[in-house]
């Protein structure tokens, strides 16, 4: 098990390097850089001043040198400084990462806690009224992208009903208590989770129906085992396996959804920061964020594999 983990971790290093090179090339090959951004905002500048400015940002060096410089710094734990205001990138990302992790984590938990039981519930009552209702709603759920759900959610629950604040992460006039934070978190997290509730429900239901038809369930019934035991030990336990993988695969999607949810609810997370960085051509910040996101996604994939091994003891990683 440990060996497997180690091998996976080592294998993901070239993937990470490939990703950072691709992103670096994408950013650098596009016409225009941060100096053009300054120039357009400050009018005329002499050629000399422009060159000086380029040299200050290290933009006068050739591409590979710049990439290797960046990589060398990263290995020492230094993500560099923002172009825009010269603040260090690392702490900024860390701070925003916390906000995003809170949002994504809550959405994931809501999605699992509501979606999976709903899937079990509807599968056990296939073709009943509740099955049709929830399956129908789940179609709406998977067809509603995070930003449209966000717009409707904000309009209905924050503006019309005034149940929740219309944005931000904490009240501005006092230090937030736990309940304050919860109050600000509930609406964006539930909105983000909608699509995943629907998705997890659909997969769980499908997987349950598949298992319900299998021979060992018939055998368990024939043995006269109590129904409750058959459902929980024999059906749900097996039906949950593929769902674990689906949950893992949905994490990159959650990151995407978070970008939109954060934009709509002015949540101070990675998504809003990324948009700032993209629009300002802030190379160090963009590179740092892409690295962090890539690491997070690779770790999530690894965690999915591990979770799979925990739920399914038949799987051995050697």
């Amino acid at each position: 098990m440990f060996k497997y983990l180690l091998r996976r971790l080592i294998l993901s290093i070239p993937v990470l390097i490939a990703i950072t090179i691709i992103i670096f090339l994408l950013i650098e090959l596009a016409p225009g850089d941060i100096v053009d951004y300054y120039m357009s905002s400050e009018g005329q500048m002499t050629q000399e001043a422009v060159e000086q400015l380029r040299a200050r940002f290290g933009l006068d060096q050739p591409l590979p040198v710049r990439y290797l410089n960046w990589l060398g710094k990263v290995l020492q734990g230094d993500l560099g400084f923002r172009f825009v205001d010269g603040r260090p990138v690392g702490p900024l990302i860390l701070q925003r990462l916390n906000a995003t992790a809170l949002l994504i984590g809550s959405a994931l938990i809501i999605g699992i806690l509501i979606g999976v039981p709903l899937g079990v519930f509807t599968a056990l009552r296939q073709y009943s009224f509740w099955d049709f209702t929830f399956t129908g709603l789940s179609f709406l759920g998977i067809s509603m992208p995070a930003f449209i759900a966000g717009i409707f959610g904000l309009y209905i629950f924050a503006i019309q009903l005034r149940w929740f604040p219309s944005g931000g992460m904490r009240p501005v006039d006092r230090t937030p208590t736990f309940f304050d934070s919860l109050y600000y978190l509930i609406l964006p997290a539930s909105i983000l989770s909608l699509q995943y509730i629907a998705q997890y429900m659909r997969y769980t239901r499908f997987s349950m129906l598949e298992v319900l038809r299998s021979d060992y369930v018939t055998t368990a019934r024939a043995k006269g085992l109590p129904e409750r035991r058959i459902i929980w030990r024999h059906i749900v336990r097996n039906a949950i396996l593929p769902v674990v993988t689906v949950i893992g695969f949905s994490i990159p999607g959650l990151v995407v959804g978070a970008v939109f949810t954060e934009t709509i609810f002015s949540w101070p997370g990675m998504g809003t920061l990324y948009l700032d960085a993209v629009q300002g051509r802030d190379v160090p910040l963009l590179m740092g964020m892409n690295l962090v996101i890539a690491v997070a996604v690779l770790l999530a994939n690894l965690a999915t594999d591990l979770a799979y091994a925990v739920v399914d003891p038949r799987i051995r990683y050697d």
Partner: peptide
């Protein structure tokens, strides 16, 4: 696999801003 591992929206956002 590499293209699939990465949340492509991130590259899309970068590209959309650059192009």
């Amino acid at each position: 696999d590499v293209v699939m591992t990465f949340p492509s929206i991130v590259i899309m956002l970068t590209l959309a801003a650059m192009l």
